[in-house]
Nucleic acid binder design. Structure first.
Lengths: 199, 199
DNA sequence: GATATGAGTGAGTAAGCAATCACACACAAG
DNA sequence: CTTGTGTGTGATTGCTTACTCACTCATATC
């Protein structure tokens, strides 16, 4: 297919081409759910390109390798988490609530409602042992989240560690849909009353 | 290649063929590191078959689909963990040590030294959202580990939850090699003094 | 020996994959 | 109107993949 063009006059008011930056954004948006569902290796770049409304050839012009695209997606999911935590901390501060608790709740909400962010993280964890670029991206993610949590909660290292551990548990339990399992282990582990900072 | 046969006389003492069960074991042993390194989708069955010393065709006779092979590998890594925890609990009991702490240490040792067990778990976590068989296997894994931990530590639900959370954190930090990172977040999170049951 | 069953393979098949290349069109500036 | 640059594509390439099929050999039982 040829790029869409105005039928009569391609006047200056109507642009038919997007900027590369807009396309890059569209690609990331399309890539997130595909990587989330299928992981790095099984995610076809054709499917991502189709989702972004461009050809596969152009995708490879904007992201020269699939690996670069994947790490960009990891970074984007990091940004989502940072936003979520920042908003929760702001809200806690404004309403005089405990920031640690509010940030924890906000995180559980985020990964519960936006599975893509969560699943991209999990795939990145698994692949990072043998993919240096992903490992680097994950380390940066931890670094950013840790310093944010440190600043906004003022917690001790022990508290921060417990808070992160809780987050990692939420990740896995959400991935396997533990809250829908009617068994003792699932009920206990998903019980929000039992967390490290909320009792 | 033709299956190996004794040159002169194939007498009853020397068997040239293995039993299917032996082959199945060999396949699982060969499959573990391949799935660990590459994840489900990127792990070639040809490579696994070669590692097990059989043809790919015979692999598919013993495990009709790749998915069945993968879930068998998940179960095998669960067995490894169960063994590790059981031994640690026995040792703790014999020497009068805290079982919770000993099991935690044993786990950190396990995933630190045998990366395959860890990485198979992480890949399974990530894939389980869209692969029911893996999800089921992971749930069974949690169920088994939870009841074991409950029995052997006698901990409260809150303690068990914190213990599992700690384990999930160890997983991720081990995957990204956090202990080799010389930054505040990495030092704090990998600090073994700061865990939930060891202070 | 004959015969049945299980162990084991070589050689495919059909599909899907990342990445490339030569080329077309849109737009802005002289 | 032309020229340069950035946006965009169709077609292809070379490779890998899970899975199958027709077949051979080993072993055990009668």
């Amino acid at each position: 297919m040829v790029p869409p063009s105005a039928t009569s006059t391609p006047t200056r008011a109507t642009r038919t081409l997007s900027t590369a930056e807009e396309r890059r954004e569209a690609i990331l948006t399309a890539a997130m759910p595909v990587f989330a569902e299928k992981g790095y290796h099984a995610a076809p770049t054709t499917e991502i390109a189709k989702g972004a409304g461009i050809s596969q050839a152009y995708l490879f012009r904007l992201f020269p390798t699939k690996e670069q695209l994947f790490t960009a997606v990891i970074e984007r999911s990091r940004e989502r988490m940072i936003e979520t935590f920042t908003e929760a901390a702001d809200r806690a501060e404004a309403e005089g609530l405990d920031p640690t608790e509010q940030m924890g709740i906000a995180y559980a909400d985020l990964v519960g409602s936006d599975r893509d962010v969560l699943l991209v993280q999990l795939h990145a964890h698994a692949i990072s042992a043998y993919m240096p670029a992903a490992r680097e991206a994950m380390r940066n993610c931890f670094a950013a989240l840790y310093s944010l949590a440190e600043e906004r909660t003022g917690g001790s290292p022990e508290e921060l560690k417990a808070w992160f551990a809780e987050g990692m548990l939420i990740n896995v339990l959400t991935a396997i849909n533990a809250e829908q399992v009617d068994q003792p282990w699932a009920r206990s582990l998903t019980d929000i009353e039992g967390d490290c900072f909320n009792q």
